[in-house]
Design a binder for these strands. Structure first.
Lengths: 211, 211
DNA sequence: AACTGCATTGACCGATTCGGACAGAAGGAG
DNA sequence: CTCCTTCTGTCCGAATCGGTCAATGCAGTT
């Protein structure tokens, strides 16, 4: 990468990055053409290759950029102060879907990068991906009071159900071209939490405030 | 389509169809190359174009073929005799995922055909898709006794949650390269039904046999 | 053996697309 | 005007694709 790229006015820099996220996010690597990226960024292809020596180095720059942004967004420390399982779920979901709402193309890019196997970039990717995933989930639920759960209910199972429901909800709305999907999601989220809390928590914990 | 295609020995005919499902199922239309289809079917490209005059007509033949198979599979009439909501859910899921297990490539193809917008085939597709979807869900839950539900619980919400959980489960296992995904799914399915029944049904219906 | 008719092959073609190179325009600073 | 950096648009060789077609193989008939 040409260092001068970092000196660019932010508006232009983001235009280029977002064009990359969009095109790499909706096409596989080989078919994501630099022509299209340059067009979406409203610059010439020559300039794109002036800042990034070749296609692959641009792609890898985008990946590291997204990686940083994601880490930075996930690893705020507020979650350490939340002790109720469902409260923490809701907090995490809020943050996750806020980010999705703000950077749709970036998340497309990340999702695709995740699943790109056997492509020309994958060699360099595989290591990075493996790391980025594991780091997160270990610490997250450390401060939660699991004694509220019934003995025969596995908290992690409830978490997975909740995640799948939210993702399914979102996926269906996107498929049918709906709007305001993230707002709608968080509206439903409380309801799902309420239902799952019924079956997961011991009775004496069911009446806690859920604002 | 060349009528002689139908006269082919079944093994060869299915080889060609499955190659088409696989390649169209994992690439978008333009990038799904007839070279690759012919190679996977173990025939020459010339022969493929001998049976199907061009790429598009082959694609459309595959779509109609899949459409027929799906309808035929969904519209058996057993579901009319099931009156318990969760029993019917499980029955439908079993059939759905049996089909998925047997025809993975075909379902990839269908899924992709669903989402292909603005591609060269889409004009011919849009009508067919719209029809195929609506026909199914209206009749399905007609014979179910909804009086078992608590008043503040919406059956359709429970169904959606169940569907999303199952799809999420399956997607995660496929993503992580697991095996025997459909068997594992149906093992978990009972557990999810049990949990959701707790919150959905009135108390007097909770002790029914669930074999 | 020779002929016939059809299934099947694979080399080939023109069109398109792509990554990348490069000559030079544009434009500000002195 | 000159110099320098930024930026453009065109061009090229390589690869890929849908589709064609002359040639081949091969079963059946005479």
């Amino acid at each position: 990468m040409n260092e001068q790229f970092l000196e660019l006015p932010e508006e232009k820099r983001l235009r280029i990055l977002n064009a990359g996220f969009e095109v790499f996010g909706s096409n596989e690597y080989k078919r994501a053409s630099t022509d299209l990226i340059a067009a979406k960024a409203d610059i010439s292809k020559g300039l794109l290759f002036y800042y990034f020596h070749n296609k692959k180095s641009f792609y890898l720059y985008l990946f590291r950029y997204a990686e940083d942004l994601l880490k930075q967004s996930v690893l705020d420390r507020n979650f350490g102060e939340i002790h109720d399982f469902f409260e923490l779920c809701e907090y995490a979901a809020t943050r996750k879907y806020q980010m999705l709402a703000q950077n749709p193309h970036m998340m497309d890019f990340v999702a695709r990068a995740f699943f790109s196997q056997k492509e020309e970039v994958s060699e360099e990717m595989d290591n990075r991906v493996a790391n980025a995933v594991g780091e997160i989930f270990t610490a997250y639920f450390n401060e939660v009071d699991f004694s509220k759960f019934k003995n025969n209910v596995e908290p992690v199972e409830i978490l997975r159900m909740l995640t799948w429901i939210a993702d399914g909800f979102l996926h269906e709305r996107q498929r049918t071209g709906k709007q305001n999907n993230y707002e709608a999601l968080m509206e439903h989220y409380d309801k799902w939490i309420y239902l799952l809390k019924q079956v997961a928590y011991k009775e004496e914990y069911l009446n806690e405030s859920c604002n």
